[in-house]
Design a binder for these strands. Structure first.
Lengths: 339, 339
DNA sequence: TGGACCGTTGTGCGCGTTCACAATACGATG
DNA sequence: CATCGTATTGTGAACGCGCACAACGGTCCA
């Protein structure tokens, strides 16, 4: 043993059996709540378990039943974004709640560097994880590939195009973006631009598509400024560039609340008033939305529910059920003061 | 098997051995990089591994070597706080980086409800986790007790009083609080109050102690408003109460940036200008600090480094090293515009 | 009294690894 | 040529558990 603290040998079923004066099989039966064990045997065993401080070895159990009662939630993101994004935490909590109800343990796995990705793939294939929830995957993501190769029960939050018919839970990003952009127009804005972030993933691309839909014939690619991440810094940068190209801009659709928060800073720096001079709307209804000044009009993204639904989808697969249709969740517009 | 997709039987060492025409022992040797295996055997085995798509079963390996190359990071927090707290994410990332370097997998475990706590304790004792990093434990925390009972290598971030001589990594909350409060006084504030959050944990209590230190003879318990959580809502609530009791207040030490953000809202609602009428300082230097208007003067908490150091402490214990002294990290004052 | 049946219990095997040991082959050395 | 050491390999046991099966003792009915 490698600790200095001389870790004492753990009690095993055999110890319990010995202590209780029964056989391993009987102990195993009470452990798993199976029938055919007499009351006196059960009591003796329970007493013995308490006495020797027995706790089943999960590795051994996993080995024989080929499952570990643990499911992973994988986030493949660069550092910075994860720290800033409150959505991920909510998804995590929602998934945990659903799993907890069925006595599954959630294990949150993060893939940061490419080295992480490799190690993670090994870990997943090691049999210590029964299924996975994958958040914010990109098209061509190596994690996605690894999961498919392992035929591991999985559910995606969001919908990268290359996951085949794997179950996913999502919102209608495109429709929501269309709706919120339209209402921006309905309130009288005529020179509307967009800061489009994360075009390399489905949510980003779909939000842009919704924007294009809404503008219809008025659409002009010069109205869109693209930035890599859903981050405050990128939002600010994007807004600055947009202001330069459209000095008379009077409406902005930022593809996330964080992006909107950055845009708000840029607008303030440029001396524009919100919502008087320019109206702005975000996406997510994260804690950013209320924290901004003025509070953001945005799309409510049910992050907790997404996590919960994804978890349930994985559990269903574990039970052998087949998930046919994607699970789509509602995401209403929340109208506040920024537009 | 429980999946509908007919998960194919995984290849085992035996399959590889058969394919390569050698014995299990030899396969095991190349798998673990041990000496005494001929070049031709090694090549044959590597080819066989690739051919049959072998990947070692971790449960089986864990069973015999009594270790799993995975360490847990436990956060025991009610929902809301975790979602709001950017520190936790940074700690997580720091720990992950350190573990990744030694090829350990980080598994993030959250304990939300009391049911979670129980399940978590079972999970930890199951042998699938070699050690744990514990964040934000309270005194008397059942998780702490479970970990001690298991004699699991552990490291705490922060310093609950009842962890005995378990290794921990922390900052000098008391000293930092003292320092920042003093500078509040040095800039001419004379009627200074504090919003003290989370007094049930060491960080909260120590920050209050530092405040008391700084005020010295001027201290009066009526200057302190206590709230349960490091949250924006509680900060706002606390500030409102403080304003009521000290209408002439001209300086506030909020025990975290989130609390300060809430206080800022309350001050704005009360029509006080910051920093002209009242100066305010926070604690953490989280993303809140820069996001507030005006930007917060605060204490820089090296969250990523805390996580990294805690991870290293756990790994050291796994190697059999004994961690004598607590690990203390620097936390400089960051002076901005809110005071 | 014999057999069928039921509840209850014990036993052996296998899950996929690693590890210690024995066994083998080969060359070098006396 | 016998002996020894060294490099390499195979084999059995063990890790802790669940499961299938056999075995036991008793009750009930014919």
């Amino acid at each position: 043993m490698e600790t200095t603290t001389e870790r004492r040998r753990r009690a095993t079923v055999k110890d319990v059996a010995l202590e209780a004066g029964v056989s391993r099989g009987t102990v195993s039966r009470v452990l798993n709540g199976q029938p055919y064990v007499s009351d006196e045997a059960r009591e003796a065993i329970e007493a013995a378990i308490a006495k020797v401080g027995f706790v089943p070895n999960r590795a051994a159990r996993s080995l024989v039943v080929q499952s570990s009662q643990a499911i992973g939630l994988i986030v493949h993101e660069p550092h910075s974004l994860f720290v800033e994004d409150p959505n991920i935490a909510s998804i995590l909590l929602g998934a945990n709640a659903a799993l907890s109800e069925e006595d599954y343990q959630l294990s949150f796995l993060i893939a940061d560097t490419s080295r992480d990705v490799e190690r993670l793939a090994r870990y997943l294939s090691g049999g210590l994880i029964d299924g996975v929830i994958i958040v914010s995957a990109r098209v061509g993501d190596p994690i996605t590939r690894a999961v498919r190769d392992l035929a591991l029960p999985a559910a995606f939050v969001g919908h990268p195009r290359d996951i085949g018919d794997a179950p996913y839970v999502a919102i209608d990003n495109r429709g929501a973006a269309r709706e919120i952009t339209r209402r921006l127009a309905d309130t009288g804005r005529t020179r509307i631009g967009m800061i489009a972030a994360a075009l390399d993933r489905d949510s980003g691309a779909d939000r842009l598509a919704g924007f294009v839909d809404a503008l219809g014939a008025d659409f002009d690619p010069r109205r869109v400024e693209s930035v890599p991440l859903y981050s405050v810094a990128d939002g600010r940068e994007g807004m600055h560039r947009l202001l330069e190209r459209m000095p008379d801009i009077d409406g902005v659709f930022a593809s996330s609340d964080a992006v909107a928060a950055g845009a708000l800073e840029a607008l303030r720096e440029a001396g524009r008033r919100v919502p008087e001079d320019v109206g702005i709307v975000g996406f997510d209804d994260s804690s950013w939305a209320l924290r901004c000044d003025p509070p953001l009009s945005t799309i409510h993204q049910p992050a907790g529910e997404l996590g919960r639904a994804a978890a349930k989808a994985v559990l269903a697969q574990l039970r052998g059920e087949r998930i046919e249709a994607p699970i789509m969740l509602d995401c209403p517009v929340v109208w506040r003061e920024s537009a």
